[in-house]
Nucleic acid binder design. Structure first.
Length: 293
DNA sequence: CGCATCCCCTGCCTGC
DNA sequence: TGCAGGCAGGGGATGC
Protein backbone atom coordinates (compact mmCIF):
# COMPACT_ATOMS: atom_id res chain seq x y z
CA UNK A 1 0.00 0.00 0.00
CA UNK A 2 2.88 2.24 0.48
CA UNK A 3 3.38 5.55 -1.13
CA UNK A 4 5.89 8.01 0.18
CA UNK A 5 3.84 9.15 3.20
CA UNK A 6 3.24 5.55 4.23
CA UNK A 7 6.92 4.73 3.84
CA UNK A 8 7.76 7.73 5.98
CA UNK A 9 5.28 6.57 8.61
CA UNK A 10 6.80 3.10 8.58
CA UNK A 11 10.27 4.59 8.87
CA UNK A 12 9.24 6.60 11.92
CA UNK A 13 7.88 3.45 13.54
CA UNK A 14 10.91 1.31 12.77
CA UNK A 15 13.61 3.85 13.53
CA UNK A 16 13.65 3.47 17.33
CA UNK A 17 13.68 -0.32 17.05
CA UNK A 18 16.49 -0.44 14.51
CA UNK A 19 18.67 2.17 16.19
CA UNK A 20 18.24 1.21 19.84
CA UNK A 21 19.19 -2.44 19.71
CA UNK A 22 21.47 -4.75 17.74
CA UNK A 23 20.12 -7.34 15.34
CA UNK A 24 20.49 -10.67 17.13
CA UNK A 25 19.45 -12.79 14.17
CA UNK A 26 17.49 -12.71 10.94
CA UNK A 27 15.10 -15.39 9.75
CA UNK A 28 14.54 -15.70 6.01
CA UNK A 29 11.45 -17.68 5.17
CA UNK A 30 12.24 -17.76 1.45
CA UNK A 31 15.15 -17.05 -0.83
CA UNK A 32 13.76 -14.15 -2.76
CA UNK A 33 11.22 -11.40 -2.94
CA UNK A 34 11.35 -9.35 -6.09
CA UNK A 35 15.06 -10.13 -6.22
CA UNK A 36 17.05 -12.87 -4.50
CA UNK A 37 18.29 -11.85 -1.07
CA UNK A 38 21.97 -10.87 -1.10
CA UNK A 39 24.49 -13.62 -0.38
CA UNK A 40 24.84 -14.36 3.35
CA UNK A 41 22.12 -11.81 4.06
CA UNK A 42 21.34 -13.04 7.57
CA UNK A 43 24.98 -13.55 8.51
CA UNK A 44 25.98 -10.06 7.41
CA UNK A 45 23.22 -8.52 9.54
CA UNK A 46 23.79 -10.59 12.67
CA UNK A 47 25.20 -8.53 15.52
CA UNK A 48 24.93 -5.28 13.56
CA UNK A 49 23.23 -2.17 14.80
CA UNK A 50 21.76 0.65 12.76
CA UNK A 51 23.18 4.10 13.30
CA UNK A 52 20.25 5.63 11.46
CA UNK A 53 17.22 4.74 9.40
CA UNK A 54 16.43 7.24 6.70
CA UNK A 55 14.26 7.46 3.62
CA UNK A 56 15.07 8.36 0.02
CA UNK A 57 12.09 8.29 -2.35
CA UNK A 58 10.28 5.12 -1.32
CA UNK A 59 13.40 3.35 -0.08
CA UNK A 60 14.23 2.93 3.58
CA UNK A 61 17.94 2.72 4.28
CA UNK A 62 19.50 1.58 7.54
CA UNK A 63 23.13 2.62 7.93
CA UNK A 64 24.75 -0.20 9.84
CA UNK A 65 27.79 -0.11 12.08
CA UNK A 66 29.45 -2.55 9.66
CA UNK A 67 29.68 0.12 6.96
CA UNK A 68 26.98 -1.56 4.95
CA UNK A 69 23.53 -0.17 4.23
CA UNK A 70 20.38 -2.26 4.48
CA UNK A 71 18.04 -1.05 1.75
CA UNK A 72 14.37 -1.96 2.04
CA UNK A 73 11.59 -1.34 -0.45
CA UNK A 74 7.96 -2.25 0.24
CA UNK A 75 6.84 -2.65 -3.36
CA UNK A 76 3.06 -2.68 -3.69
CA UNK A 77 2.04 -4.81 -0.77
CA UNK A 78 4.90 -4.84 1.72
CA UNK A 79 4.41 -4.00 5.38
CA UNK A 80 6.29 -4.26 8.64
CA UNK A 81 4.92 -5.02 12.05
CA UNK A 82 6.66 -4.85 15.39
CA UNK A 83 6.17 -7.50 18.04
CA UNK A 84 7.60 -8.18 21.45
CA UNK A 85 8.40 -4.55 22.10
CA UNK A 86 8.09 -3.25 25.61
CA UNK A 87 5.35 -0.68 25.61
CA UNK A 88 4.71 2.03 28.14
CA UNK A 89 1.07 1.92 27.13
CA UNK A 90 -0.16 -1.14 28.91
CA UNK A 91 2.14 -2.04 31.77
CA UNK A 92 1.90 -5.68 32.63
CA UNK A 93 -0.40 -6.51 29.78
CA UNK A 94 0.41 -9.60 27.79
CA UNK A 95 -0.15 -7.90 24.50
CA UNK A 96 2.79 -9.56 22.80
CA UNK A 97 1.44 -11.71 20.05
CA UNK A 98 2.56 -15.28 20.24
CA UNK A 99 1.92 -15.52 16.58
CA UNK A 100 3.27 -18.27 14.52
CA UNK A 101 4.28 -17.14 11.08
CA UNK A 102 1.46 -15.34 9.34
CA UNK A 103 0.90 -15.92 5.67
CA UNK A 104 3.51 -14.07 3.63
CA UNK A 105 5.76 -13.27 6.55
CA UNK A 106 9.04 -13.46 4.66
CA UNK A 107 11.64 -11.91 6.96
CA UNK A 108 11.90 -11.68 10.74
CA UNK A 109 14.49 -9.45 12.40
CA UNK A 110 15.15 -10.48 15.99
CA UNK A 111 16.65 -7.72 18.11
CA UNK A 112 18.81 -8.11 21.16
CA UNK A 113 16.23 -6.40 23.36
CA UNK A 114 13.55 -8.94 22.42
CA UNK A 115 11.74 -6.90 19.80
CA UNK A 116 10.90 -8.50 16.48
CA UNK A 117 10.32 -6.73 13.20
CA UNK A 118 8.44 -8.83 10.67
CA UNK A 119 8.26 -8.10 6.97
CA UNK A 120 5.11 -9.27 5.22
CA UNK A 121 4.57 -8.96 1.48
CA UNK A 122 1.87 -10.97 -0.34
CA UNK A 123 2.80 -9.85 -3.84
CA UNK A 124 6.53 -9.91 -3.18
CA UNK A 125 7.27 -6.82 -5.24
CA UNK A 126 9.34 -5.51 -2.36
CA UNK A 127 13.03 -6.26 -1.87
CA UNK A 128 15.99 -5.90 0.44
CA UNK A 129 19.60 -5.20 -0.46
CA UNK A 130 22.88 -4.90 1.39
CA UNK A 131 25.28 -2.44 -0.18
CA UNK A 132 28.38 -0.61 1.01
CA UNK A 133 27.36 2.81 2.27
CA UNK A 134 30.20 4.37 0.34
CA UNK A 135 28.90 3.32 -3.06
CA UNK A 136 25.17 3.50 -2.43
CA UNK A 137 24.81 6.79 -4.28
CA UNK A 138 26.20 5.24 -7.44
CA UNK A 139 24.07 2.11 -7.22
CA UNK A 140 21.81 1.85 -10.29
CA UNK A 141 18.70 2.14 -8.13
CA UNK A 142 19.84 5.44 -6.63
CA UNK A 143 22.08 7.08 -9.19
CA UNK A 144 19.27 8.28 -11.41
CA UNK A 145 16.76 9.29 -8.76
CA UNK A 146 15.26 12.73 -9.19
CA UNK A 147 14.17 15.40 -6.77
CA UNK A 148 13.17 14.40 -3.25
CA UNK A 149 9.64 15.78 -3.13
CA UNK A 150 9.66 16.86 0.51
CA UNK A 151 12.98 18.67 0.22
CA UNK A 152 13.73 22.26 -0.66
CA UNK A 153 15.00 21.00 -4.00
CA UNK A 154 11.44 20.64 -5.21
CA UNK A 155 10.32 24.01 -6.51
CA UNK A 156 8.77 25.44 -9.66
CA UNK A 157 12.08 26.22 -11.37
CA UNK A 158 13.30 22.66 -10.82
CA UNK A 159 10.12 21.28 -12.33
CA UNK A 160 10.49 23.66 -15.27
CA UNK A 161 13.98 22.40 -15.90
CA UNK A 162 12.89 18.76 -15.70
CA UNK A 163 9.78 19.23 -17.84
CA UNK A 164 11.36 21.24 -20.64
CA UNK A 165 10.62 19.69 -24.04
CA UNK A 166 9.01 16.65 -22.45
CA UNK A 167 6.01 15.56 -24.45
CA UNK A 168 4.81 12.91 -22.04
CA UNK A 169 1.65 13.75 -20.11
CA UNK A 170 2.46 15.59 -16.91
CA UNK A 171 0.95 12.71 -14.91
CA UNK A 172 3.48 10.31 -16.44
CA UNK A 173 6.28 12.79 -15.83
CA UNK A 174 5.34 13.02 -12.16
CA UNK A 175 5.58 9.25 -11.84
CA UNK A 176 9.00 9.19 -13.51
CA UNK A 177 11.45 8.54 -10.67
CA UNK A 178 14.20 10.39 -12.56
CA UNK A 179 12.21 13.61 -12.25
CA UNK A 180 10.50 13.46 -8.87
CA UNK A 181 11.58 10.50 -6.77
CA UNK A 182 8.90 8.76 -4.78
CA UNK A 183 5.68 10.41 -5.91
CA UNK A 184 3.22 7.59 -6.52
CA UNK A 185 0.00 7.19 -8.43
CA UNK A 186 -2.33 8.43 -5.72
CA UNK A 187 -0.44 11.57 -4.84
CA UNK A 188 0.33 12.42 -8.47
CA UNK A 189 -3.43 12.49 -9.06
CA UNK A 190 -4.10 14.44 -5.89
CA UNK A 191 -1.37 17.01 -6.55
CA UNK A 192 -2.56 17.67 -10.10
CA UNK A 193 -6.11 18.22 -8.88
CA UNK A 194 -5.01 20.63 -6.18
CA UNK A 195 -2.92 22.49 -8.76
CA UNK A 196 -5.87 22.50 -11.23
CA UNK A 197 -3.69 20.99 -13.96
CA UNK A 198 -5.01 18.36 -16.37
CA UNK A 199 -3.05 15.10 -16.16
CA UNK A 200 -3.28 14.92 -19.96
CA UNK A 201 -1.23 18.06 -20.59
CA UNK A 202 2.22 17.54 -22.01
CA UNK A 203 4.73 18.20 -19.25
CA UNK A 204 6.64 20.59 -21.48
CA UNK A 205 3.53 22.70 -22.06
CA UNK A 206 3.71 23.85 -18.44
CA UNK A 207 7.09 25.49 -19.02
CA UNK A 208 7.36 29.06 -20.30
CA UNK A 209 9.00 29.64 -23.68
CA UNK A 210 11.95 31.17 -21.90
CA UNK A 211 12.38 27.91 -20.01
CA UNK A 212 11.26 29.58 -16.82
CA UNK A 213 8.57 28.37 -14.54
CA UNK A 214 4.93 29.36 -14.69
CA UNK A 215 2.08 29.91 -12.26
CA UNK A 216 0.97 26.37 -12.99
CA UNK A 217 4.34 24.97 -11.94
CA UNK A 218 4.37 27.11 -8.82
CA UNK A 219 0.98 25.66 -7.94
CA UNK A 220 2.13 22.13 -8.77
CA UNK A 221 5.26 22.27 -6.63
CA UNK A 222 3.24 23.65 -3.73
CA UNK A 223 0.48 21.06 -4.21
CA UNK A 224 2.95 18.15 -4.17
CA UNK A 225 4.46 19.29 -0.89
CA UNK A 226 1.13 20.14 0.63
CA UNK A 227 -0.57 16.83 -0.09
CA UNK A 228 2.45 14.77 0.98
CA UNK A 229 2.88 16.75 4.18
CA UNK A 230 -0.78 16.38 5.07
CA UNK A 231 -0.60 12.64 4.46
CA UNK A 232 2.58 12.25 6.50
CA UNK A 233 0.92 14.16 9.33
CA UNK A 234 -2.11 11.86 9.13
CA UNK A 235 0.05 8.74 9.09
CA UNK A 236 2.00 10.09 12.01
CA UNK A 237 -1.19 10.47 13.95
CA UNK A 238 -2.18 6.86 13.51
CA UNK A 239 1.34 5.88 14.50
CA UNK A 240 1.10 7.87 17.71
CA UNK A 241 -2.14 6.05 18.39
CA UNK A 242 0.02 2.94 18.45
CA UNK A 243 -2.40 1.11 16.21
CA UNK A 244 -0.55 0.71 12.96
CA UNK A 245 3.14 0.88 12.55
CA UNK A 246 2.67 -1.35 9.56
CA UNK A 247 2.31 1.05 6.68
CA UNK A 248 -1.26 0.39 5.74
CA UNK A 249 -2.99 3.54 4.71
CA UNK A 250 -3.84 5.78 7.59
CA UNK A 251 -6.98 7.79 7.66
CA UNK A 252 -5.64 10.13 5.01
CA UNK A 253 -7.34 7.94 2.43
CA UNK A 254 -10.56 9.57 3.57
CA UNK A 255 -9.06 12.86 2.44
CA UNK A 256 -8.52 11.88 -1.18
CA UNK A 257 -10.19 14.44 -3.41
CA UNK A 258 -10.07 12.49 -6.66
CA UNK A 259 -8.31 9.14 -6.21
CA UNK A 260 -10.73 6.22 -6.53
CA UNK A 261 -13.67 8.63 -6.66
CA UNK A 262 -14.83 8.14 -10.23
CA UNK A 263 -18.29 9.60 -10.75
CA UNK A 264 -18.25 11.66 -7.56
CA UNK A 265 -18.78 15.40 -7.58
CA UNK A 266 -15.59 17.41 -7.84
CA UNK A 267 -14.73 18.75 -4.38
CA UNK A 268 -13.38 22.03 -5.74
CA UNK A 269 -15.61 24.86 -4.46
CA UNK A 270 -18.09 26.04 -7.09
CA UNK A 271 -16.90 23.41 -9.60
CA UNK A 272 -19.80 21.43 -11.04
CA UNK A 273 -17.54 18.78 -12.53
CA UNK A 274 -17.52 15.04 -11.98
CA UNK A 275 -14.42 12.96 -11.27
CA UNK A 276 -13.36 10.88 -14.27
CA UNK A 277 -11.07 7.87 -14.53
CA UNK A 278 -8.75 7.33 -17.47
CA UNK A 279 -5.73 5.08 -18.00
CA UNK A 280 -2.30 6.59 -18.62
CA UNK A 281 0.80 4.47 -18.97
CA UNK A 282 -1.28 1.53 -17.82
CA UNK A 283 -2.27 3.13 -14.53
CA UNK A 284 -5.51 4.73 -13.43
CA UNK A 285 -5.69 8.49 -13.40
CA UNK A 286 -8.51 10.24 -11.56
CA UNK A 287 -9.19 13.90 -12.29
CA UNK A 288 -11.83 16.54 -12.83
CA UNK A 289 -12.08 17.43 -16.55
CA UNK A 290 -13.91 20.62 -15.60
CA UNK A 291 -11.50 22.42 -13.28
CA UNK A 292 -8.21 20.79 -14.28
CA UNK A 293 -6.92 22.48 -17.41
C1' DC B 1 16.19 9.24 -26.53
C1' DG B 2 11.35 9.43 -25.04
C1' DC B 3 7.42 7.16 -24.39
C1' DA B 4 4.01 3.18 -24.01
C1' DT B 5 3.31 -1.52 -22.96
C1' DC B 6 3.92 -5.53 -20.48
C1' DC B 7 5.25 -8.11 -16.60
C1' DC B 8 6.52 -9.77 -11.82
C1' DC B 9 2.73 -11.83 -7.76
C1' DT B 10 -1.34 -12.42 -4.78
C1' DG B 11 -5.73 -10.88 -3.04
C1' DC B 12 -10.00 -8.78 -3.38
C1' DC B 13 -14.07 -7.22 -5.59
C1' DT B 14 -17.54 -7.43 -9.23
C1' DG B 15 -20.56 -9.56 -12.32
C1' DC B 16 -22.38 -13.56 -14.44
C1' DT C 1 -22.09 -20.50 -4.28
C1' DG C 2 -18.46 -20.66 -7.67
C1' DC C 3 -15.70 -18.90 -10.99
C1' DA C 4 -13.68 -15.73 -14.40
C1' DG C 5 -12.07 -11.35 -15.12
C1' DG C 6 -10.44 -6.96 -13.81
C1' DC C 7 -8.03 -4.25 -10.78
C1' DA C 8 -4.41 -2.71 -7.21
C1' DG C 9 -0.68 2.14 -4.12
C1' DG C 10 5.93 0.08 -7.73
C1' DG C 11 9.17 -0.07 -10.94
C1' DG C 12 12.18 -2.55 -14.28
C1' DA C 13 12.72 -4.56 -19.07
C1' DT C 14 11.55 -4.28 -23.64
C1' DG C 15 10.31 -2.44 -28.04
C1' DC C 16 8.68 1.11 -31.12
Amino acid sequence: MPELPEVETVRLGLEPVFTSSAIASVELRRGDLRFPFPPRFAARLKGRRARSLYRRAKYMIAKLDSGEALVMHLGMSGSFRIEGEKSSHAPGAFHVKRSGAGAHDHVVFHFANGARVIYNDPRRFGFMLLEPQATLATHPLFAGLGIEPLSRDLHAAALAKAFTRRKAPVKAALLDQRIVAGLGNIYACEALHRARISPLRAAGSLVAKSGKSTDALVRLAAAIKEVLCEAVAAGGSTLRDHRQADGTLGYFQHSFRVYDREGAACPTPRCKGQIARIVQSGRSTFFCPTCQK
